[in-house]
Structure formats: structure tokens, C-alpha cells
């Protein structure tokens, strides 16, 4: 194998965290196999990104093209296909972002190359690359090998690969790339940011966060009460937004907000990785869940295995009592 290519992703003048994460992993894999690590970044005004990337990559390929300014699947598919054909990397590595999810499946079909997405581990075994995926919603792991192929495509799970400081000083190479025709069947119309209409959960010191374990929208009341006595605010996991019980601005996790409160109190949240990724920066985590095996218990400092609807009212009372005593 010749090289590993990491395709970096950026939006809003920021390189995606997950790009750094897979880049670090890529560096490690390249070092282990004595391969060249390439990084590619495209768009306009990307010199700063390129410079960043040289700390990890041996070579950074930059493509200046305003059609690549936004992370959109169609133009990037054309670009990456082109790069693969030109560079012939052994592994193409990307973060498992919404961008990659829209892009890599069709890319793999277009080029006829194998793809494994959302990997939690990527490692060499007897000279072959193997990957591990988390399946059944985190309840099992599966490892995969690849059929013989000049290039393989891998996306790595967000938050799974620690960023190690880059020590390299790679060089930058600009490649000319032009689109033959514009994509007229799929028109990008812009972004819609969810506005925080009042409550900004990222600023809260205490988050009382609810999942589907609260069963009914009505039960938010007692949770609000708990948040009130703790001087915090209520946030939630994705199903709660899906059910329409809370607005999406309250959602913690991959598709919601990333939070770092002093206390994160997870109520009836099972702790799927998409959620955990948004809250693992909390200084103290407490989980209450009926299912003793819920993954949230492996990220929490304290846990109570019980029905939240039973514990929360009692907790409100106890906290009020303790507060009353000190006041």
C-alpha cells in the first residue's frame, strides 16, 4: 500500500473536530505501516487549513475551487474520485459526519471499492487493515476485513479517536481541479441553524437531561421542578425532540449541542453514543435509568437503577429539604 488519504471537512471557517481525530488515527496507521499520510482540503481561502494539516500529514493536497466551499456530497464525490484515481491511496479515511454519510456510499459504488463506515477502531493485522464497528446500538462489536482492492474507504466515528498533537511539517501541493458540468438535478439551498430561543443549554452549569424514559411530555413538569431546585435547565436526548416534547435547541448530542456542565443528570437516557458524544465533557455525570445495562452507566460517575418517575419526585423533595436546612 502506498498511502493513506484523509479528506478534511470544514464549515463556518472551522475544520471539523472529527477531521483532526481521523487525521491522528491516520498518522498512527501510516507510521505503523511506514506509509505516506496525505490530507486533502478543498474550497476557497484554505491555506490556513492546509497549514494546520501539515502538522500531521506528510503532504497536503489543496484544491482551490469555489464549488467546493461548502461540504456538499456531489462536488466532493467528483473531487475525491478524481484524487483517488490520480493518487491511488490504499486507504481513504474520513470522519463519519453527515457530510461523509451523504458522500462515501455513492463514491464506493462509483469506484467499485469497499467501504466500512462509522468505525470505532482501525488497525493493522498481519499487514491487512481491519476495522471494528459498534453494532446493535453499542451492544456488540464486529470486526471486518476487506477484499483485495487498490483503495478502501473508511469513516471513523466522531469522538472515537483521540487527537494527538501533530509533529510533522508536511508540504502543501495544490492541484488544479475543474468541474466539467454543474449539477442541476440537486440544488443546495443553504443552511438553517436552529436558533436558541431563550435557553442556551451550552451555558448551563447544571443540566437535567431527559430521554424517552420519562414516557410522557407531561412528566417534563417534575423534571423542570428538579432543574429549578438545582438551579439548572432541562436538556434532552434525541427521541424527546423527535416526539416533539422539547424543541431541538435543548438536544444534547451529535445532532444537537455539545455541553460541558458542572453536573449532567441523565434521566431515562440510555446513552447511545450519538448522545454521549455531546455530554462527555461534563465534570460530573449522574444517570438514572431502569435498565441496569444501559450504556449511560459506563460514562456516569453515579448511577441509580430505577424508574426516573419514582426517583425524581423524591429527589426534588430531598434536595429541597437539604436546601431548606442550609438557608
Amino acid at each position: 500500500m502506498s498511502s493513506i488519504l484523509v479528506v478534511a471537512e470544514h464549515r463556518n471557517q472551522t475544520l471539523a473536530d472529527v477531521s483532526y481525530q481521523v487525521l491522528s488515527k491516520g498518522r498512527q496507521l501510516a507510521d505503523q505501516a511506514q506509509m505516506e499520510l496525505l490530507a486533502a482540503v478543498a474550497g476557497v481561502d484554505i491555506d490556513a487549513y492546509a497549514k494546520e494539516l501539515t502538522r500531521w500529514a506528510d503532504r497536503v493536497i489543496i484544491v482551490n475551487n469555489d464549488q467546493l466551499e461548502e461540504p456538499l456530497a456531489e462536488p466532493y464525490q467528483k473531487l475525491i474520485a478524481h484524487l483517488i484515481r490520480e493518487i491511488r491511496p490504499g486507504i481513504v479515511l474520513m470522519g463519519h459526519s453527515s457530510f461523509a454519510m451523504d458522500l462515501v456510499p455513492s463514491l464506493s459504488v462509483e469506484l467499485g471499492i469497499p467501504l466500512v463506515t462509522d468505525c470505532v477502531d482501525i488497525f493493522w493485522q498481519n499487514g491487512d487493515i481491519l476495522v471494528t464497528r459498534s453494532i446493535y446500538n453499542g451492544k456488540a462489536n464486529a470486526s471486518y476485513s476487506f477484499a483485495q482492492s487498490e483503495t478502501i474507504l473508511i469513516t471513523g466515528r466522531v469522538g472515537e479517536f483521540p487527537v494527538e498533537e501533530g509533529q510533522r511539517q508536511g508540504w502543501i501541493e495544490e492541484i488544479e481541479f475543474a468541474f466539467e458540468e454543474e449539477c442541476d438535478y440537486k440544488k443546495f439551498e443553504g443552511y438553517l441553524e436552529v436558533e436558541a430561543a431563550g435557553v442556551d443549554i451550552t451555558q448551563a452549569e447544571v443540566l437535567v437531561s431527559v430521554g424517552r424514559g420519562i414516557k410522557e411530555k407531561k412528566n417534563l413538569e417534575i423534571v423542570e421542578e428538579l432543574a429549578r431546585v438545582l438551579g439548572g435547565v432541562v436538556s434532552c436526548s434525541r427521541p424527546v425532540v423527535d416526539y416533539g416534547w422539547l424543541p431541538s435547541e435543548r438536544q444534547v448530542g451529535l445532532s444537537g449541542k455539545t455541553v460541558q456542565p458542572k453536573l449532567y443528570l441523565g434521566l431515562g437516557i440510555s446513552g447511545a453514543f450519538q448522545h454521549v458524544v455531546g455530554m462527555k465533557g461534563a465534570r460530573m455525570t449522574v444517570a438514572i435509568n431502569k435498565d441496569a445495562k444501559a450504556p449511560i452507566f459506563s460514562v456516569a460517575n453515579y448511577g441509580i437503577v430505577d424508574d426516573v418517575l419514582k426517583v425524581v419526585p423524591a429527589l426534588v423533595n430531598k434536595i429541597s429539604e437539604l436546601k431548606g436546612r442550609t438557608e
Binding site: K215, E216, K218, N219, E221, I222, L309
Partner: peptide
């Protein structure tokens, strides 16, 4: 007892 529409 499960739906809990009358609780709270």
C-alpha cells in the same frame, strides 16, 4: 399505570 396520563 404505564401511560401515566394522570400523574404528576
Amino acid at each position: 399505570f404505564y401511560l401515566d396520563l394522570l400523574g404528576g
